[in-house]
Computed example of a mutant assay.
Amino acid sequence: MTRQGLRMTMEGFSYRGPNRGVHALEKWRTDEEDLFLVTHMGFLEIDPEQWYLEIGGLVDRPIRLRLADIQAMPQREYMSFHECAGSPLAPQEPKRRVGNVVWKGVPLKEVLVLAGIAKEATYVWTSGLEWGEYAGLQNEIFQKDLPIHKAMADEVLLALEINGKPLSPDRGGPVRLVVPGWYGTNSVKWIGSIIAADCRAPGPYTTRFYNDTTPTGTKPVWAVVPESVIVGPDPAVSLQSGTATRIWGWAWGDEPIASAEVSVDGGSRWHAASVGPRQDRSWQQFEYFWTPTRGQHVLKCRCTNVQGEIQPLTPARNTVHDITVTVVDA
């Protein structure tokens, strides 16, 4: 790499997450140790004194900002779920890597305004500084893109903090992009450059990977579709028959969740669950009370957003979540 102050601390694809999976996600705001960590090419450590962000392309004033410049700009906090899109090599396989955290940083639009983004610009390309191998590709830039309307949205941040603490190197610090409501692949860690352009970014992470097939063609993996998970009960713990049991979990998506349902018989019948409010783009809690009988039961949950989109039963990254619980005599 041509930049100074960069060091790969771990090479290759990596994933870390809570041992109990979604059943560890018991808090409204996810503790950082329970928030997944995933990277394509490895983890990067950057000397904050040598980090800088370049903004160019279709702008009136190409600029270079140091960390102190970013820190001196007006900042805001924003609560949002944060979800991994899963493997681009198996896009229909649900991974359930998610959490709900508070980010703090400078709105991306403030930097774009500072550079004087041209009216011809329709996309903003954002690139990370990491390097390495992924899926047979060597040292391809991890470059993503945002339509200009999303890049200029108030909630899209050049984040400096998570849950009130400075971003660690593994979280993408000292500065990373955060795109609330969109899958985590769009929230570029270790950001180093921003380019305003009149077309989509041409790299493999926007062309070869992270595009879903639809009946009318392909679409980018951008906005998060409705999804929900059962946090409790934990299937590792037996339930008692005849005892009222709370089935609860989290539901989320780019659009607010309007309703949630629970099935206690493997999907034959569905029951309306209560759904709590959301803050900014946080997840929303749902719950349903059930008095079980002895034996094994398959519990499922699904949710629907305000646009009428519902979690599918067919294979998809947001397919309906289910667990099997065992009920014993009290």
Rank of each mutant, 00 (worst) to 15 (best):
5 G>P: 00
6 L>S: 01
9 T>W: 02
14 S>Y: 13
14 S>T: 07
16 R>V: 10
16 R>L: 12
20 R>C: 02
21 G>I: 03
21 G>V: 02
21 G>N: 00
25 L>G: 04
27 K>L: 07
27 K>D: 15
28 W>Y: 14
29 R>M: 11
30 T>S: 12
33 E>F: 08
34 D>K: 14
35 L>N: 12
40 H>E: 14
42 G>S: 08
44 L>C: 02
51 W>P: 01
51 W>Q: 03
53 L>G: 02
61 R>H: 15
61 R>F: 14
62 P>M: 11
65 L>Y: 08
65 L>K: 07
66 R>H: 15
67 L>H: 08
68 A>T: 07
69 D>T: 08
73 M>Q: 06
75 Q>F: 00
77 E>C: 08
79 M>V: 13
80 S>Y: 06
91 P>C: 02
93 E>S: 08
93 E>I: 12
93 E>A: 09
98 V>Q: 12
99 G>H: 07
102 V>H: 06
102 V>N: 11
102 V>Y: 05
106 V>P: 12
107 P>F: 01
110 E>V: 00
111 V>L: 15
117 I>P: 01
120 E>P: 00
123 Y>F: 03
126 T>M: 14
127 S>C: 06
127 S>K: 04
130 E>R: 01
130 E>W: 00
132 G>C: 04
134 Y>A: 05
138 Q>R: 13
139 N>T: 11
140 E>Y: 05
145 D>H: 09
153 A>Q: 08
156 V>N: 15
162 I>T: 09
162 I>V: 14
170 D>N: 14
170 D>T: 13
171 R>N: 11
174 P>G: 05
175 V>N: 01
181 G>D: 00
186 N>I: 08
189 K>C: 10
192 G>P: 06
193 S>P: 08
193 S>V: 03
193 S>W: 05
193 S>E: 10
204 P>K: 06
207 T>G: 02
208 R>I: 05
208 R>M: 06
208 R>D: 03
215 P>H: 10
219 K>E: 15
224 V>Q: 14
225 V>R: 13
225 V>S: 15
225 V>M: 14
227 E>W: 13
228 S>W: 07
230 I>K: 04
231 V>W: 06
236 A>T: 11
238 S>Y: 06
238 S>V: 09
238 S>I: 01
243 T>F: 08
248 W>I: 00
252 W>A: 14
259 S>R: 08
261 E>T: 03
263 S>A: 04
264 V>T: 15
265 D>C: 03
265 D>A: 01
268 S>H: 10
273 A>D: 07
273 A>S: 11
274 S>R: 11
275 V>K: 04
275 V>Y: 03
275 V>T: 06
277 P>C: 07
277 P>L: 05
282 S>A: 15
283 W>T: 07
284 Q>P: 01
285 Q>I: 05
287 E>I: 06
288 Y>S: 01
291 T>F: 03
299 L>I: 11
301 C>N: 15
307 Q>M: 07
308 G>T: 01
309 E>I: 12
310 I>Q: 11
311 Q>F: 10
316 A>Q: 07
318 N>P: 03
318 N>L: 02
322 D>H: 12
323 I>V: 15
324 T>A: 13
325 V>H: 03
330 A>V: 05
